[in-house]
Protein backbone atom coordinates (compact mmCIF):
# COMPACT_ATOMS: atom_id res chain seq x y z
CA UNK A 1 0.00 0.00 0.00
CA UNK A 2 2.84 2.39 0.82
CA UNK A 3 4.38 1.64 -2.53
CA UNK A 4 1.03 2.38 -4.17
CA UNK A 5 0.77 5.75 -2.44
CA UNK A 6 4.37 6.68 -3.23
CA UNK A 7 3.95 5.77 -6.87
CA UNK A 8 0.72 7.72 -7.17
CA UNK A 9 2.26 10.74 -5.49
CA UNK A 10 5.16 10.64 -7.90
CA UNK A 11 2.72 10.46 -10.80
CA UNK A 12 0.88 13.38 -9.24
CA UNK A 13 3.99 15.54 -9.18
CA UNK A 14 4.60 14.82 -12.85
CA UNK A 15 0.98 15.67 -13.65
CA UNK A 16 1.31 18.95 -11.77
CA UNK A 17 4.50 19.83 -13.62
CA UNK A 18 2.77 19.15 -16.91
CA UNK A 19 -0.22 21.24 -15.92
CA UNK A 20 2.08 24.05 -14.82
CA UNK A 21 3.89 24.08 -18.14
CA UNK A 22 0.71 24.00 -20.20
CA UNK A 23 -0.94 26.72 -18.12
CA UNK A 24 2.17 28.86 -18.37
CA UNK A 25 2.11 28.71 -22.16
CA UNK A 26 -1.66 29.28 -22.33
CA UNK A 27 -1.49 32.27 -20.02
CA UNK A 28 1.36 33.75 -22.04
CA UNK A 29 -0.58 33.22 -25.26
CA UNK A 30 -3.79 34.85 -23.98
CA UNK A 31 -4.42 38.27 -25.49
CA UNK A 32 -4.44 41.20 -23.09
CA UNK A 33 -2.00 42.14 -20.37
CA UNK A 34 -2.35 42.55 -16.61
CA UNK A 35 -1.20 46.14 -17.09
CA UNK A 36 -3.58 47.28 -19.81
CA UNK A 37 -6.33 49.65 -18.75
CA UNK A 38 -8.88 51.98 -20.24
CA UNK A 39 -6.39 54.79 -19.95
CA UNK A 40 -3.39 54.48 -22.20
CA UNK A 41 -0.03 54.00 -20.53
CA UNK A 42 3.01 55.60 -22.09
CA UNK A 43 5.21 52.92 -23.67
CA UNK A 44 8.14 54.08 -21.52
CA UNK A 45 6.12 53.55 -18.35
CA UNK A 46 4.73 50.22 -19.54
CA UNK A 47 8.25 49.00 -20.23
CA UNK A 48 9.24 49.83 -16.65
CA UNK A 49 6.28 47.96 -15.21
CA UNK A 50 6.93 44.95 -17.42
CA UNK A 51 10.58 44.91 -16.44
CA UNK A 52 9.61 45.00 -12.76
CA UNK A 53 7.55 41.84 -13.12
CA UNK A 54 10.04 40.17 -15.45
CA UNK A 55 7.81 40.35 -18.52
CA UNK A 56 10.65 41.75 -20.60
CA UNK A 57 12.48 38.43 -20.52
CA UNK A 58 12.01 35.72 -23.15
CA UNK A 59 9.29 33.17 -22.43
CA UNK A 60 11.68 30.29 -21.77
CA UNK A 61 13.65 32.25 -19.23
CA UNK A 62 10.47 33.40 -17.53
CA UNK A 63 9.31 29.81 -17.28
CA UNK A 64 12.54 28.65 -15.64
CA UNK A 65 12.53 31.55 -13.17
CA UNK A 66 8.93 31.04 -12.28
CA UNK A 67 9.34 27.29 -11.88
CA UNK A 68 12.32 27.91 -9.62
CA UNK A 69 10.22 30.23 -7.48
CA UNK A 70 7.39 27.72 -7.29
CA UNK A 71 9.74 25.01 -6.10
CA UNK A 72 10.67 27.40 -3.29
CA UNK A 73 7.02 27.79 -2.45
CA UNK A 74 6.33 31.22 -3.98
CA UNK A 75 4.37 31.71 -7.17
CA UNK A 76 5.39 35.33 -7.41
CA UNK A 77 3.81 38.72 -6.78
CA UNK A 78 0.32 39.46 -7.95
CA UNK A 79 0.72 41.63 -11.02
CA UNK A 80 -2.45 43.53 -10.17
CA UNK A 81 -2.80 43.68 -6.39
CA UNK A 82 0.09 45.75 -5.08
CA UNK A 83 2.27 44.25 -2.38
CA UNK A 84 0.39 40.99 -2.24
CA UNK A 85 1.93 37.71 -3.31
CA UNK A 86 0.07 34.79 -4.79
CA UNK A 87 0.89 32.68 -1.76
CA UNK A 88 -0.55 35.39 0.49
CA UNK A 89 -3.76 35.65 -1.49
CA UNK A 90 -4.25 31.89 -1.51
CA UNK A 91 -3.24 31.67 2.13
CA UNK A 92 -5.94 34.17 3.11
CA UNK A 93 -8.76 32.81 1.04
CA UNK A 94 -8.16 29.08 1.01
CA UNK A 95 -9.04 28.44 4.69
CA UNK A 96 -12.34 30.25 4.18
CA UNK A 97 -13.19 28.16 1.15
CA UNK A 98 -12.10 25.06 3.01
CA UNK A 99 -14.44 25.85 5.90
CA UNK A 100 -17.36 26.65 3.66
CA UNK A 101 -16.61 23.63 1.48
CA UNK A 102 -16.33 21.22 4.36
CA UNK A 103 -19.60 22.34 5.93
CA UNK A 104 -21.34 22.17 2.56
CA UNK A 105 -19.94 18.75 1.85
CA UNK A 106 -20.92 17.47 5.27
CA UNK A 107 -24.42 18.79 4.72
CA UNK A 108 -24.51 17.24 1.27
CA UNK A 109 -23.48 13.85 2.64
CA UNK A 110 -25.80 13.97 5.64
CA UNK A 111 -28.76 14.79 3.41
CA UNK A 112 -27.85 13.03 0.21
CA UNK A 113 -26.69 9.62 1.37
CA UNK A 114 -29.62 8.76 3.70
CA UNK A 115 -32.04 10.05 1.08
CA UNK A 116 -30.40 7.87 -1.57
CA UNK A 117 -30.46 4.76 0.64
CA UNK A 118 -34.08 5.37 1.56
CA UNK A 119 -35.08 5.85 -2.05
CA UNK A 120 -33.33 2.64 -3.11
CA UNK A 121 -34.78 0.56 -0.31
CA UNK A 122 -38.30 1.93 -0.74
CA UNK A 123 -38.00 1.92 -4.49
CA UNK A 124 -41.09 3.01 -6.44
CA UNK A 125 -42.91 4.32 -3.40
CA UNK A 126 -43.42 7.94 -2.43
CA UNK A 127 -40.27 7.66 -0.29
CA UNK A 128 -38.44 7.16 -3.58
CA UNK A 129 -40.34 9.61 -5.75
CA UNK A 130 -40.33 12.56 -3.39
CA UNK A 131 -36.62 12.69 -2.55
CA UNK A 132 -35.64 11.87 -6.12
CA UNK A 133 -37.88 14.58 -7.59
CA UNK A 134 -36.54 17.03 -5.06
CA UNK A 135 -32.97 16.05 -5.89
CA UNK A 136 -33.65 16.37 -9.61
CA UNK A 137 -34.93 19.86 -8.92
CA UNK A 138 -31.83 20.46 -6.80
CA UNK A 139 -29.52 19.49 -9.65
CA UNK A 140 -31.49 21.56 -12.14
CA UNK A 141 -31.80 24.62 -9.91
CA UNK A 142 -28.47 26.40 -10.22
CA UNK A 143 -26.87 27.98 -7.18
CA UNK A 144 -27.45 31.45 -8.60
CA UNK A 145 -31.18 30.83 -8.30
CA UNK A 146 -31.10 28.93 -5.03
CA UNK A 147 -28.79 31.44 -3.32
CA UNK A 148 -30.83 34.60 -3.87
CA UNK A 149 -34.00 32.63 -3.14
CA UNK A 150 -32.70 31.54 0.27
CA UNK A 151 -31.38 35.06 0.93
CA UNK A 152 -34.75 36.52 0.04
CA UNK A 153 -36.74 34.16 2.27
CA UNK A 154 -34.46 33.80 5.29
CA UNK A 155 -32.67 37.12 5.05
CA UNK A 156 -35.04 39.75 3.76
CA UNK A 157 -38.52 38.38 4.51
CA UNK A 158 -38.08 36.37 7.71
CA UNK A 159 -34.97 38.33 8.76
CA UNK A 160 -33.54 35.30 10.52
CA UNK A 161 -30.12 35.19 8.95
CA UNK A 162 -27.56 37.63 7.57
CA UNK A 163 -27.45 37.72 3.78
CA UNK A 164 -23.83 38.56 3.15
CA UNK A 165 -20.39 38.59 4.71
CA UNK A 166 -18.24 36.15 6.63
CA UNK A 167 -18.11 37.21 10.26
CA UNK A 168 -19.31 34.21 12.25
CA UNK A 169 -21.19 30.92 12.26
CA UNK A 170 -24.57 32.42 11.41
CA UNK A 171 -23.08 33.85 8.23
CA UNK A 172 -22.16 30.35 7.08
CA UNK A 173 -25.66 28.89 7.11
CA UNK A 174 -27.14 30.27 3.91
CA UNK A 175 -24.09 29.83 1.65
CA UNK A 176 -23.33 26.35 3.00
CA UNK A 177 -26.95 25.35 2.45
CA UNK A 178 -26.98 26.74 -1.07
CA UNK A 179 -23.82 24.89 -1.99
CA UNK A 180 -24.66 21.77 0.06
CA UNK A 181 -28.14 21.24 -1.40
CA UNK A 182 -26.75 21.17 -4.90
CA UNK A 183 -24.27 18.43 -4.07
CA UNK A 184 -26.73 16.61 -1.79
CA UNK A 185 -28.88 16.07 -4.84
CA UNK A 186 -25.99 14.44 -6.68
CA UNK A 187 -25.07 12.24 -3.75
CA UNK A 188 -28.69 11.13 -3.34
CA UNK A 189 -28.95 10.02 -6.93
CA UNK A 190 -25.55 8.32 -6.95
CA UNK A 191 -26.26 6.49 -3.70
CA UNK A 192 -29.66 5.37 -4.94
CA UNK A 193 -28.10 4.00 -8.12
CA UNK A 194 -25.30 2.24 -6.25
CA UNK A 195 -27.67 0.72 -3.70
CA UNK A 196 -30.10 -0.48 -6.36
CA UNK A 197 -27.30 -2.20 -8.19
CA UNK A 198 -26.34 -4.02 -5.00
CA UNK A 199 -29.91 -4.92 -4.06
CA UNK A 200 -30.42 -6.50 -7.49
CA UNK A 201 -27.48 -8.85 -7.12
CA UNK A 202 -28.06 -12.57 -7.12
CA UNK A 203 -26.45 -13.03 -3.75
CA UNK A 204 -28.94 -10.63 -2.23
CA UNK A 205 -31.78 -12.79 -3.54
CA UNK A 206 -30.01 -15.83 -2.07
CA UNK A 207 -29.58 -14.08 1.26
CA UNK A 208 -33.25 -13.10 1.30
CA UNK A 209 -34.25 -16.69 0.42
CA UNK A 210 -32.17 -17.94 3.31
CA UNK A 211 -34.14 -15.63 5.56
CA UNK A 212 -31.50 -13.00 6.36
CA UNK A 213 -33.11 -9.97 7.90
CA UNK A 214 -33.69 -7.11 5.45
CA UNK A 215 -31.86 -4.67 7.70
CA UNK A 216 -28.81 -6.94 7.78
CA UNK A 217 -28.88 -7.17 4.01
CA UNK A 218 -29.01 -3.43 3.62
CA UNK A 219 -26.62 -2.26 6.30
CA UNK A 220 -24.17 -5.12 6.41
CA UNK A 221 -24.04 -6.45 2.90
CA UNK A 222 -25.12 -3.77 0.45
CA UNK A 223 -24.11 -0.47 2.00
CA UNK A 224 -20.37 -0.80 1.43
CA UNK A 225 -20.74 -1.55 -2.25
CA UNK A 226 -23.65 0.80 -2.74
CA UNK A 227 -21.65 3.76 -1.56
CA UNK A 228 -18.86 3.33 -4.06
CA UNK A 229 -20.30 5.61 -6.77
CA UNK A 230 -20.90 8.34 -4.20
CA UNK A 231 -17.39 7.96 -2.82
CA UNK A 232 -15.89 8.11 -6.29
CA UNK A 233 -17.68 11.41 -6.75
CA UNK A 234 -16.39 12.69 -3.40
CA UNK A 235 -12.99 13.66 -4.77
CA UNK A 236 -14.09 15.86 -7.66
CA UNK A 237 -16.97 17.15 -5.53
CA UNK A 238 -14.73 18.39 -2.75
CA UNK A 239 -12.28 19.99 -5.16
CA UNK A 240 -15.19 21.54 -7.02
CA UNK A 241 -16.89 22.80 -3.89
CA UNK A 242 -13.75 24.38 -2.51
CA UNK A 243 -12.55 26.06 -5.65
CA UNK A 244 -15.67 26.46 -7.68
CA UNK A 245 -17.92 28.21 -5.23
CA UNK A 246 -17.52 31.41 -7.22
CA UNK A 247 -21.24 32.00 -7.62
CA UNK A 248 -22.05 31.36 -4.00
CA UNK A 249 -19.16 33.53 -2.87
CA UNK A 250 -20.35 36.38 -5.06
CA UNK A 251 -23.95 36.14 -3.90
CA UNK A 252 -23.07 36.00 -0.22
CA UNK A 253 -19.98 38.22 -0.33
CA UNK A 254 -17.58 35.59 1.02
CA UNK A 255 -13.85 36.31 0.75
CA UNK A 256 -12.97 32.83 -0.46
CA UNK A 257 -10.91 31.31 -3.22
CA UNK A 258 -13.59 30.99 -5.87
CA UNK A 259 -13.71 34.72 -6.65
CA UNK A 260 -9.97 34.75 -7.27
CA UNK A 261 -10.25 32.13 -9.98
CA UNK A 262 -12.45 34.42 -12.00
CA UNK A 263 -10.80 37.67 -11.04
CA UNK A 264 -7.29 36.40 -11.74
CA UNK A 265 -8.30 35.35 -15.23
CA UNK A 266 -10.14 38.61 -15.94
CA UNK A 267 -7.23 40.68 -14.66
CA UNK A 268 -4.68 38.53 -16.51
CA UNK A 269 -2.94 38.23 -13.19
CA UNK A 270 -0.64 35.57 -14.60
CA UNK A 271 1.12 34.31 -11.49
CA UNK A 272 -2.15 34.13 -9.62
CA UNK A 273 -3.77 32.14 -12.44
CA UNK A 274 -0.81 29.74 -12.31
CA UNK A 275 -0.91 29.41 -8.56
CA UNK A 276 -4.63 28.73 -8.48
CA UNK A 277 -4.49 26.24 -11.33
CA UNK A 278 -1.74 24.28 -9.66
CA UNK A 279 -3.58 24.38 -6.34
CA UNK A 280 -6.75 23.12 -7.98
CA UNK A 281 -4.89 20.37 -9.83
CA UNK A 282 -3.08 19.35 -6.66
CA UNK A 283 -6.39 19.11 -4.84
CA UNK A 284 -7.87 16.85 -7.50
CA UNK A 285 -4.78 14.65 -7.55
CA UNK A 286 -4.83 14.35 -3.78
CA UNK A 287 -8.57 13.75 -3.54
CA UNK A 288 -8.46 11.09 -6.22
CA UNK A 289 -5.67 9.33 -4.38
CA UNK A 290 -7.71 9.36 -1.17
CA UNK A 291 -10.77 8.11 -3.00
CA UNK A 292 -8.76 5.30 -4.56
CA UNK A 293 -7.49 4.23 -1.17
CA UNK A 294 -10.98 4.24 0.30
CA UNK A 295 -12.36 2.40 -2.70
CA UNK A 296 -9.92 -0.43 -2.37
CA UNK A 297 -10.74 -0.66 1.29
CA UNK A 298 -14.44 -0.93 0.48
CA UNK A 299 -14.28 -3.09 -2.62
CA UNK A 300 -12.69 -6.49 -2.12
CA UNK A 301 -12.38 -6.93 -5.88
CA UNK A 302 -9.81 -4.10 -6.09
CA UNK A 303 -6.21 -4.28 -4.96
CA UNK A 304 -3.44 -1.72 -4.50
CA UNK A 305 -1.28 -2.18 -7.52
Amino acid sequence: MLKFIALRLLQGVLVLLGIYAVTFVLVAATPGSPFSSERAIAPEILAQIEAFYGYDKPLGERFITSLGNVLQGEFGPSAVYANRTVTQIIGESFPISLTLGSISLLLALLLGIPAGILAAVKRNTWLDYVPMSVSMAGICLPTFVMGPLLALVFGLILQWLPVAGWYGPEFMILPATTLGLYYAAYFARLTRGGMLEMLNQDWVRTARAKGVKESTIIWKHCLKGGLIPAITFLGPALAGIISGSFVVETIFQIPGLGQWFVRAALNRDDFLVLGLTVLFAAMIVLMNLLVDIVQVALNPRLKYD
Binding site: L152, A164, G165, T250
Partner: peptide, 8 residues
Protein backbone atom coordinates in the same frame (compact mmCIF):
# COMPACT_ATOMS: atom_id res chain seq x y z
CA UNK B 1 -25.50 41.44 -3.57
CA UNK B 2 -24.99 45.04 -2.61
CA UNK B 3 -28.69 45.73 -2.90
CA UNK B 4 -29.52 42.70 -0.74
CA UNK B 5 -27.10 43.97 1.89
CA UNK B 6 -28.62 47.44 1.78
CA UNK B 7 -32.11 46.04 2.22
CA UNK B 8 -30.85 43.74 4.97
Amino acid sequence: TEETMFRN
